[in-house]
């Protein structure tokens, strides 16, 4: 009767106050049967990682519009590494210039979704790429 559920932390790092996009994604993941912990606005990378550990999530999804992605996204993966965590999928979304993507991927952000990405695409990606047994 064991029933594993995919758990996702949806967070909004940085100082911009728009979380509509993050909420839409959170709802889509819920409707796909996942448990979505939503932590709200203005999260620091430290807060995101700590919440992800306490909640034992399979995936961290972050959305950012302010352009601070190059500072904040890699900081999250760095902190995870410091904690010895290698089984949490990290994805990002928001307005991210094409040129920044290789560096972010190299830093361990598995996928970056631009504005207007179909929600099914995000759901499918999470479903197919979570790492925990």
């Amino acid at each position: 009767m064991s029933s594993r559920k995919i758990r996702v932390l949806v967070a909004k790092p940085g100082l911009d106050g728009h979380d509509r996009g993050a909420k839409v994604v959170a709802r889509a993941l819920r409707d796909a049967g996942m448990e979505v912990v939503y932590t709200g606005l203005r999260q620091t990378p430290e807060m995101i990682v700590e919440a992800a550990l306490q909640e034992d999530v399979d995936c961290i999804g972050m959305s950012i519009l302010s352009g601070a992605h190059m500072a904040l996204f890699p900081k999250v993966t760095e902190l995870l590494k410091k904690e010895g965590v290698d089984d949490i999928l990290v994805i990002g979304g928001g307005i991210i210039p094409e040129d920044d993507i290789p560096a972010l991927k190299a830093a361990g952000i598995s996928k970056l979704f631009g504005p207007g990405t179909p929600l099914e695409e995000i759901v499918e990606f999470v479903r197919n790429n979570v790492k925990k047994a």
Binding site: A26, R30, D31, G33, E35, V37, Y38, T39, Q43, E50
Partner: peptide
């Protein structure tokens, strides 16, 4: 509550507890 249709859930209570995260 989990959705009876999808089995998924939106867990939002943490939003109010941010000050204690660290």
């Amino acid at each position: 509550p989990s959705s009876p249709f999808s089995g998924g859930a939106l867990l939002g209570d943490r939003i109010r507890m941010q000050e204690h995260t660290l």
